Simulated scan of single mutants.
Amino acid sequence: MKKVLFLILICGLQTAFSQNTKQVSKTKASETKNEKPVIINDKNLYFDSHLVVEEAPPANSDNTVYNTAEIDIKPIFPGGFEKFYKFVENNFKYSDEGVDLKGKKIYARFIVEQDGALTDIKILKDAGYNTGTETIRVLKKCPRWSPGEKDGKKVRVLYSLPITLK
């Protein structure tokens, strides 16, 4: 009964804090398309309504991020997922907490770039005890993947996957 009440409380808080978080821009889309960069601390910052992007995307590349259902060939770790999970297992360092995390899952999301690099790594759910931070560290250390392809071109792909701790 306490678990149900706790879940209801969490859902209520999530709903309350997710309301009205979108920023409404009064500027027309046509007015923001040709914005000039603003230079702050020697960085070019481009403003696109409420989103701040540190660098402008290259003019000649397709900056679209596809999901795995939209592409012809999915990105893959060199050697397949068995080798990927072996890589994670060999490189993941557990904290000194002495807590048994065996079987716990971490859900990660990242973009596999056109050159196979992993960027925009986010942890959707971790197992606590700094497992999210450690997962990000391991994924940054990861060798380049074979990129996804759509219509014979290498494309950026949003990828989500669970990582089970052993």
Rank of each mutant, 00 (worst) to 15 (best):
M1N: 03
V4M: 07
V4H: 04
L5R: 00
I8Y: 02
I8D: 00
I10L: 11
I10N: 02
C11M: 12
L13I: 13
F17Y: 12
S18L: 14
S18D: 08
S18G: 14
Q19T: 10
Q19G: 10
Q19L: 14
Q19A: 13
Q19K: 13
N20F: 08
N20Q: 07
N20T: 06
V24D: 05
S25W: 00
A29V: 08
A29I: 12
A29P: 08
S30A: 11
T32Y: 00
K33H: 10
K33F: 06
N34W: 08
N34Q: 13
N34F: 10
E35R: 00
K36M: 15
P37W: 01
I39Q: 09
N41S: 14
N41I: 02
N41Q: 15
N41Y: 07
D42W: 02
L45I: 07
F47S: 11
F47K: 13
F47W: 05
H50K: 01
L51D: 01
L51F: 06
V53D: 00
E54T: 09
E54C: 05
P57S: 11
A59L: 06
N60C: 06
D62W: 03
D62S: 04
D62R: 03
T64K: 13
V65R: 03
V65D: 01
Y66C: 06
Y66V: 03
A69P: 12
E70S: 09
I73E: 09
P75A: 07
I76E: 15
F77Q: 04
P78C: 12
P78A: 09
P78N: 12
E82I: 07
K83S: 09
F84W: 04
F84M: 07
E89I: 07
N90R: 10
N91W: 07
N91M: 06
F92W: 04
F92V: 09
D96Q: 11
D96T: 09
E97M: 10
G98L: 02
D100K: 14
L101P: 13
K102H: 11
K102N: 15
G103Y: 05
G103E: 13
K105N: 13
I106A: 06
I106V: 13
I106C: 00
F110S: 03
I111M: 03
V112Q: 06
Q114R: 15
D115T: 03
D115E: 01
G116N: 08
G116L: 04
A117L: 09
A117D: 14
L118C: 07
T119Y: 06
I121G: 03
I121D: 01
I123M: 04
L124E: 14
D126M: 03
D126H: 11
A127K: 04
A127S: 11
A127R: 00
G128C: 07
Y129M: 13
Y129F: 15
T131Q: 09
E134N: 02
E134V: 12
T135C: 09
V138C: 04
L139N: 01
K140E: 10
K141F: 13
K141A: 15
P143S: 04
P143R: 01
P147A: 05
G148Y: 08
E149L: 13
E149C: 11
G152I: 11
K153W: 08
K153Q: 12
V155W: 02
V157Y: 11
S160E: 04
S160T: 14
I163S: 05
